[in-house]
């Protein structure tokens, strides 16, 4: 199976000499095509920093990262933009939809940026809208729809250009449990049906239980890794809670 993301010895420190803070320390990670990986850890563990680095929005202090065979650490700004556009899809906690565009226009934005012909755009948007069940709100504006609908629209935008890797940052963070479940089921379906590779950062054990593999980080280091393998979602959920408990405190909100 093809390796989509390969990170070797990734370090990230903030601040200047004498007042340094290590956010990430010697992270090694590899993600294969078709995986659905969750990253968990307490606040301040470095989850978001890691995701920002994978998103090419931030750069590591040292280490090597290849995504889909390309080294993203040595790329210049121009190339990074192209790379983000063609290889990555993003789902953010706060949706990041453009409120001057309709849902449909928001979804087709990445395709428009890549200059895909209009007829092709139409076809792909319709297909994706069906996957996420948002066909009836396509012509509405973001401020007219609910949070759950917004997040499904954002997810549609993330995958419409068939990216090599979808990065999700706390996608269920602002959703109620019903909307969250429906979004997670959609992502799961996408992962199984279309072999989409998804990396999701979450602090919610319930959300993480939809993944095939969960990586725990603590104090900037890899702490443990859990595989779902044959387990049911509920069993997997239990395992995740156990690990979280061993990470200690601060996780009352996980249940």
């Amino acid at each position: 199976m093809k390796t989509i993301l390969q990170a070797k010895h990734v370090n990230k420190t903030f601040g200047t000499k004498g007042n340094q803070y290590t956010a990430l320390q010697n992270i090694d990670l590899s993600i294969e095509e078709g995986e659905f990986v969750g990253i968990m850890g307490p606040s301040g563990a470095g989850k978001s920093t890691l995701l920002n680095i994978f998103s090419t929005i931030d750069t590591p202090t040292s280490g090597e990262i290849t995504i889909d065979g390309q080294n993203i650490v040595t790329m210049n700004e121009e190339k990074l933009s192209d790379f983000r556009r063609n290889k990555l899809g993003f789902i953010f906690q706060d949706y990041n939809l453009l409120d001057t565009l309709t849902v449909k226009e928001n979804i087709l934005l990445p395709l428009a940026l890549s200059k895909v012909p209009a007829a092709e755009i139409e076809k792909r948007v319709e297909a994706i809208a069906d996957t996420f069940g948002i066909r009836q709100i396509l012509d509405k504006y973001p401020y007219h729809i609910s949070g759950g609908q917004k997040q499904r629209a954002a997810a549609s935008r993330a995958i419409v250009a068939n990216p090599s890797l979808i990065l999700a940052d706390e996608p269920t963070g602002a959703l109620d449990s019903k909307s969250a479940t429906s979004l997670l089921e959609s992502l799961s379906k996408l992962n199984q049906g279309n072999q989409a590779t998804i990396l999701m950062v979450t602090h919610d054990a319930y959300a993480a239980s939809f993944c095939k593999r969960v990586i725990f980080i603590n104090d900037g280091r890899l702490f443990r890794e859990l595989h779902k393998d044959g387990l049911t979602r509920k069993e997997f959920f239990g395992r995740i809670l156990e690990v979280l408990a061993s990470l200690g405190g601060e996780h009352h909100d996980a249940v």
Binding site: S55, I57, E77, E78, S81, D82, F83, R84, R85, N86, L88, F90, F92, N96, L97, L98, D99, T100, L109, P110, L113, R157
Partner: peptide, 15 residues
């Protein structure tokens, strides 16, 4: 904020 979103999803500064 809008342009920040665009930047994140891969729009170049030149564009």
């Amino acid at each position: 904020a809008r342009y920040l979103i665009l930047h994140k999803i891969g729009v170049k500064k030149r564009e």
